[in-house]
C-alpha cells in the first residue's frame, strides 16, 4: 500500500494520533467496573476527546456520551478494535448512527468475551503460568522472563487496536454495506451461544440444604443436579432477566435484591 492511500484512510475529522491516544485512554477499561453499567463509564472516558472533536455542539456531544455510558462489558483488549470501528461509524454518520453503534457494540460483546476470556485470559496464563511457576520453584526466573516478553508483544499489539478497528470499520461501512447486518445477526448467534455457556459455567451458587427424615438425611443439591445441572444459576439469570425486562426494577435494585438474597442465603444456610 502506498503512502497516500494510507493517509486517506483517516479523517476528515479523526486523525491517526487521536486513535493512538484512545488506546491509552481505553486502559481505563475495567477500572470503573460496576454492576450497573460494567465498563460503560470507561468507554465514555476513552472516547470523550474524539467525540468532542466530532460533535462541536454541546447537546450532540452529551447525547453521544450518554450513548456510550450505557452497559458495556467484554474482554477489553479486543474491545478496542470494536470501539475503533465505532469511531469510524460515529465520524461518518454522527448521531444518526447512534442506535446502530450501540447494536454493533452489544452484538460483538459476547463473541469477543468468549474468544478473549478463553484464549487471552485463560489459555495463555495457564500455559505460561505453569512454565513460569515450575521454573521459579527451581529458582530460575527464565520462565517469568519469557512470559514477560510475550506480555510486552501483546501490549504493543494492543496499543494499535483502535487504528486497526477504525480502518476495518470504515471499510465495513464504505465497501460492505449491508453485509454488516448479516454479520451482526451471525455475531448475535455466536454471542448468545457463548452467553448460554456462561450461565452454565461462571455462576457457581449451590444449596447446602439438607433434609432429615429420622435417620436418613437427604441433600438437596445432588437432587437438583439430577433434574438440571446448574439449576440455581439458570433460575437466577431467569429471575434477573424477567425483573429487568418488566422494567419494574432498575438494575441497581435488582443488584441490591441479589445481595440481600445472598446475605439471607448465607445467614440461614440455604445458599453456598
Amino acid at each position: 500500500m502506498n503512502k497516500k492511500n494510507q493517509k486517506d484512510v483517516y479523517g476528515p475529522i479523526v486523525t491517526k494520533k487521536d486513535l493512538h491516544k484512545a488506546n491509552y485512554r481505553w486502559l481505563m477499561s475495567v477500572e470503573t467496573y460496576n454492576y450497573e453499567t460494567q465498563q460503560g463509564a470507561s468507554v465514555a472516558y476513552a472516547l470523550s476527546p474524539i467525540l468532542r472533536k466530532i460533535y462541536k455542539n454541546d447537546d450532540d456531544y452529551v447525547e453521544a456520551l450518554d450513548n456510550h455510558f450505557q452497559y458495556y462489558n467484554t474482554q477489553p483488549w479486543l474491545a478496542a478494535i470494536v470501539l475503533g470501528a465505532c469511531v469510524a461509524m460515529e465520524e461518518k454518520q454522527g448521531l444518526a448512527a447512534k442506535t446502530a453503534i450501540n447494536d454493533f457494540k452489544v452484538g460483538t460483546m459476547g463473541p469477543l468475551a468468549g474468544i478473549g476470556d478463553s484464549l487471552l485470559m485463560t489459555m495463555i496464563p495457564t500455559i505460561m503460568g505453569s512454565i513460569a511457576a515450575y521454573m521459579a520453584l527451581q529458582n530460575n526466573p527464565f520462565g517469568i522472563l519469557l512470559w514477560g516478553v510475550l506480555i510486552a508483544i501483546i501490549f504493543f499489539l494492543r496499543m494499535h487496536c483502535f487504528e486497526f478497528g477504525y480502518r476495518q470499520g470504515s471499510k465495513i461501512i464504505t465497501e460492505y454495506g449491508d453485509k454488516i447486518n448479516y454479520l451482526t445477526e451471525a455475531a448475535s448467534v455466536l454471542g448468545i451461544t457463548v452467553v448460554g455457556s456462561l450461565i452454565g459455567s461462571v455462576i457457581s451458587v449451590t444449596s447446602p440444604l439438607k433434609f432429615q427424615f429420622g435417620k436418613v438425611s437427604m441433600q438437596i443439591q445432588p437432587m437438583l443436579d439430577k433434574i438440571l445441572p446448574q439449576m440455581i444459576p439458570a433460575l437466577l439469570v431467569l429471575l434477573a432477566y424477567k425483573l429487568l425486562k418488566s422494567k419494574k426494577l432498575s438494575m441497581t435494585w435488582v443488584i441490591l435484591l441479589f445481595i440481600v438474597i445472598a446475605m439471607f442465603g448465607a445467614a440461614f444456610g440455604f445458599l453456598k
Binding site: 454492576y35 452467553v195 451458587v205 439469570v237 432477566y241 429487568l244 443488584i255 438474597i261
Partner: peptide
C-alpha cells in the same frame, strides 16, 4: 458469585 447473573441478564 450471584451478581454475574444480573450482568448476564442485562446482556440478554
Amino acid at each position: 458469585e450471584m451478581l454475574p447473573a444480573v450482568g448476564i441478564a442485562m446482556l440478554l
